[in-house]
Design a protein around this nucleic acid. Sequence first.
DNA 1: AAATTGACTAAATAATTCATTTGTTCTAAT
DNA 2: ATTAGAACAAATGAATTATTTAGTCAATTT
Lengths: 197, 197
Amino acid sequence: MDRDRKQNEILDAALKVFAAYGFRKTTVEDVAEKVGMTKSNLYFYIRNKQDLYQKTVSRALQRWRDSVAQAVSETDDVVEKFSVMAKQSFAYLADDEDLRRVCMKDPGIFSLSPEEDRFSEINLGAMQLIKSILVQGIEEGRFHPVDVDHVTELFFSIYIMFLIKTYVKSQGISSVRMYDEGLKIILRGLCVDRQVP
Amino acid sequence: MDRDRKQNEILDAALKVFAAYGFRKTTVEDVAEKVGMTKSNLYFYIRNKQDLYQKTVSRALQRWRDSVAQAVSETDDVVEKFSVMAKQSFAYLADDEDLRRVCMKDPGIFSLSPEEDRFSEINLGAMQLIKSILVQGIEEGRFHPVDVDHVTELFFSIYIMFLIKTYVKSQGISSVRMYDEGLKIILRGLCVDRQVP
DNA sequence: AAATTGACTAAATAATTCATTTGTTCTAAT
DNA sequence: ATTAGAACAAATGAATTATTTAGTCAATTT
């Protein structure tokens, strides 16, 4: 089946177009043109514009999540895992220009309230990663026995907040410094054993 | 001069009206009626609608800040100060219904980016309080020697984020729990000496 | 059969116009 | 010094028309 390859081709093209114009201002004809087919034929592959957008962004977000999971899996130490997760999650967007542009034009992609999170499925996966690291750390006696669910949500919220500050509004360098300082304090407050910095 | 009393009367009335209808939907006639004077006479006291709103909200925010400063001043211990500041700052809005309503109708009052903060003068004051406590804690050797400016901004951002989560979107009970857990972790990560919880 | 197209329609969006409200000023009276 | 009422410009809202665009379909090509 060649169907899947074409699907991906379409999603790749769509990401570029959405990155350039934003959801509102791109027409499905724009996307069709980018792929090199007619609008009506594009509809052979997509359900509708909204769905195309959802799938496009979801795919990009999944790449992001996978990249973090990959980086985390390369170490065994929980504390290291936590640190890598935090850093990789935050740094990723700097390299994915298209996704970054899409996010800037549609700030709602990063939502501070779970109810209105249009990509909750993917974000729940990200939170699952945080939670699993917390649980592992607590089991190993490396982390304090915190309220895992609430702390997971807390960390995720702080993380999202920084994404917004850094990539949606663009307070680049200052917020990066804040993120680093915050990570240090949180790690220190989380860890049981103390090594003098 | 009776002028100031009248000014305050107006600002009090305006807060109630703005709380009820929001900026957009209140007319200056509504406010005038609430104070018990005609629209045109109200203009003897105010510059324009926008300015009235600004002054009204500013005054309410100042009461907030003063209430926190007052609570903090009642203890000498830095760690206690930090804790009181965090708790009082967060809890205050629960009691000030009018201000809370205004904030819910105008989420822009809480801004995560300093550039678009319409009440930066007041918020800078709040940050000054955080900073002074941090500095005192570090000087006394109770806090780790963190990057004061960035950590101040960090804490303030997290705080604002929680205000938004709790009072603008209304994720009440869950976000309160998150706030408490977060405060514990941050205090532990901030403090030099360790007392087992 | 699966993939593609151009023609078609219903719905959304944008542009225009006109009517009403409302922010703001001014003059005159108390 | 304070107030009220009239007056006006600017903003807002409602109603109308014109244009674009999302989405469908029958016909054609591969």
